[in-house]
Design a protein around this nucleic acid. Structure first.
Length: 404
DNA sequence: AAACCTTTGAAGTTA
DNA sequence: TAACTTCAAAGGTTT
């Protein structure tokens, strides 16, 4: 219950940036920018994500927003921002938002004169990503209109039934709207039929990961030694149960969109380093820009709730999916990050990070405007922080502390 | 081959 | 209720 309350946006815990709810609440009912135009983010997202999903019957707070979101007629929707083709194995199905127009995410954007990207694997120069097309969707010119909608599982295809009712012959990554509704109406959450590992196209949904054969075999090996019938049946259930991934949070959505761009900008290829850059860029975003992602993340959660009423993040915790507990590498206090030097790369237009291990949780959690909520160590560190007015970005220069 | 690294945020668990 | 933990993505690196 609590989770549901938290997810519906009505009882949001204080967001990292206080401006978020106040910015976004009006946006719930209007995906339009202050200038009156529909924001590309909302435009693309809403057009693609909510054309058909019936969310009005429930009790979520933003029903009206969703209703409104679905309302715009095609004439209202500028199609030039709908370039998306979803690679079934790489793109989250809930990721039409990847279609954001870059123009709205200028912070940290590279200068236009930057050279074309080079594929790190092939060495072949990659064409620059068209501003309207997500870098996650490599499209050849003229193919946009031919490529299935990234939300094909939600969007009607020409000449095809919108929501084919499938039978046991197929597994669906996400249930179609019909099956969603059916499951919602016919089954209590814990009994939602797990028949959604594959889309009607047969393409496995990236958000749903079926345990691998190897995992299953290893489980069965163990089971052969110690299992009882009860344990076997339990494992059978687990085998059948698809792994429904968590909905992406705002930062994850941002990362997904911006990763390719950052990779293209500099020579770094290591995700950990890229993520550090993305984290800094995230903080460099204006609140309005961040708010877009928070809003999208909120809708992701809503949609996820609609699709998987009985799902809980707990389902993905260690043990329920057969993952081994992560091993932790001991990192000595003060140990410098091996990638620090990478941040000297001028392509980042950011100052070098002196101490990458410095925690930022208070800043991340409360934001700069609520420093009174920060823990003591973070406040002290903040006092010693150095600012770089050129980028407007804060750079902390202090000894690492594990306090926060 | 599997875990690690690294980021933020959501949500779960623990004390 | 605060603090802590896990997981979500990504892919090169480490074990």
């Amino acid at each position: 219950m609590l989770a549901a309350k938290r997810q519906d946006g009505g009882l949001f815990k204080g967001p990292p940036y206080p401006g978020y709810p106040f910015i976004m609440i009006p946006d719930l009912t209007s995906p339009y920018l202050p200038n009156g135009s529909l924001s590309p983010t909302a435009r693309t997202y809403l057009q693609m994500k909510w054309p058909l999903l019936d969310v009005q019957a429930g009790s979520l707070q933003s029903r009206q927003a969703l209703k409104d979101a679905r309302s715009p007629s095609p004439a209202h929707i500028v199609s030039n921002k709908v370039p998306v083709v979803q690679h079934p194995h790489h793109v989250h199905p809930l990721t039409p938002l990847i279609t954001y127009s870059n123009e709205h995410f200028t912070p940290g954007n590279p200068p236009p004169h930057l050279p074309a990207d080079v594929d790190p694997k092939t060495g072949i120069p990659r064409p620059p990503h068209p501003p309207d097309i997500s870098p996650y969707y490599p499209l050849s010119p003229g193919t946009v209109g031919q490529i299935p909608h990234p939300l094909g599982w939600l969007v009607p295809q020409q000449g095809q039934p919108v929501y084919p009712i499938t039978t046991g012959g197929f597994r669906h990554p996400y249930p179609t709207a019909l099956t969603v509704n059916a499951s919602m109406s016919r089954f209590p959450p814990h009994m939602v039929p797990p028949h959604h590992s594959l889309h009607t196209t047969g393409i496995p949904h990236p958000a749903i990961v079926t345990p691998t054969v190897k995992q299953e075999s290893s489980q069965s090996d163990v089971g052969s030694l110690h299992s009882s019938k009860h344990q076997d049946s339990k494992k059978e259930e687990e085998k059948k149960k698809p792994h429904i991934k968590k909905p992406l949070n705002a930062f994850m959505l941002y990362m997904k969109e911006m990763r390719a761009k950052v990779v293209a900008e500099c020579t770094l290829k290591e995700s950990a380093a890229i993520n550090q850059i993305l984290g800094r860029r995230w903080h460099a975003l204006s609140r309005e820009e961040q708010a877009k992602y928070y809003e999208l993340a909120r809708k992701e959660r809503q949609l996820h709730m609609q699709l998987y009423p009985g799902w809980s993040a707990r389902d993905n915790y260690v043990g329920s999916y057969g993952k081994k507990k992560k091993r932790k590498r001991d990192k000595q206090p003060g140990e410098t990050n091996e990638h620090s030097e990478c941040f000297l790369n001028p392509c980042l237009s950011l100052p070098p990070i002196t101490d990458l291990s410095a925690p930022k949780k208070c800043r991340a959690r409360f934001g700069l405007d609520q420093q009174n909520n920060w823990c003591g160590p973070c406040r002290r560190k903040k006092n010693g922080a150095r600012f770089f007015p050129l980028t407007g970005e804060e750079e902390e220069v202090f000894q690492p502390s594990r306090t926060c």
